[in-house]
């Protein structure tokens, strides 16, 4: 299924330990994963299983203790916004910048001239559903809007890869479902490769081409599900129901281990 697409991301035997006051803790143990170009790959697993750490490594913000990560065949050592854009869990918008200026941020750091980056950012606001909000500051926006601005900031730099760390985790259920549909639409139009961290079974099944289930700490890849159903997907279809049951049984096992 994914073999037909070229491999874009390769995670090879990555291990990460953190030093805490009670000694070293292994966050990730020997994780390997390969993601094809254009994939929507979801990482799901119990809290503290190192999903965010893995994402941070792909973004070049965290260095692995062992193993390596390749993007386009090149090892990731530092953040490279030309290839990878990140959307963080709690938006992380700069409160002293307007929505438009926040979307422009990445382009500004890349030295894109003011007029051009303004145009790029303005054109993005429409599909983001933020047309009338260019001059608003983050505090004047709802949670869903803020997260869309953050996604706009990531899309503006037009990197191939979009890393999303529980982007809708802080939103209410309804907004969350709508944002998922909206993201799907964006993904299908822009053909980005997305790595998406979530706790939500619904999001994983509704959005992904593949789902990687991670184990409780130290995080490993427990299993990988390939989802080949057409979009938009109906959660009620028997196929989805079966997948959901399967996914839940795997996650349940790990979540129980994490709670112990």
């Amino acid at each position: 299924m994914t073999a037909a697409r070229g491999e874009l991301i390769a995670i090879e035997g990555v291990t990460k330990r953190y030093l805490t006051s009670s000694g070293p803790v292994e966050a990730l143990h020997d994780v390997s994963l390969s993601v094809g170009e254009g994939d929507f790959c979801t990482l799901i697993g119990p809290s503290g299983c190192g999903k965010s750490t893995l994402l941070g490594m792909l973004g070049g913000l965290v260095a692995p203790d062992e193993g390596r990560l390749l993007v386009d065949g090149q090892p990731v050592t530092t953040p490279d916004p030309r290839r990878v854009a990140t959307v963080f869990q709690d938006a992380g918008l700069f409160p002293w910048r307007t929505a438009l200026q926040n979307v422009e941020f990445g382009l500004e750091l890349q030295g894109v001239p003011a007029a051009r980056r303004r145009r790029t950012a303005s054109e993005l606001l429409g599909p983001l559903g933020l047309s009338g909000f260019a001059e608003k500051y983050p505090r004047e926006l709802s949670g869903g809007m803020k997260q869309r601005v953050a996604i706009g900031r990531a899309l503006a730099i037009d990197a191939k890869i979009l890393l999303m760390d529980e982007p809708f985790g802080a939103l209410d259920e309804q907004t969350r479902v709508l944002m998922g549909e909206w993201l799907l639409d964006i993904w299908r139009r822009t053909r980005k490769t997305v790595i998406f961290v979530t706790h939500s079974l619904h999001e994983a099944l509704f959005l992904s081409t593949r789902v990687a289930v991670m184990t409780a700490r130290p995080g490993r890849i427990k299993s990988i599900l390939e989802l080949s159903m057409e979009y938009p997907r109906s959660v009620e279809s028997p196929e989805m129901a079966a997948l959901r049951a399967k996914l839940w049984s795997e996650i349940r096992e790990e979540s129980l281990r994490a709670m112990r």
């Binding site: 070049g60 913000l61 953040p79 490279d80 916004p81 963080f88 992380g92 700069f94 750091l109």
Partner: peptide
Amino acid sequence: QFVTVARAYGAGAVTVFRR
């Protein structure tokens, strides 16, 4: 968090300081 965001978008130490 803001420092992390800026670094992810390619900011070095001087840019983090200024921006």
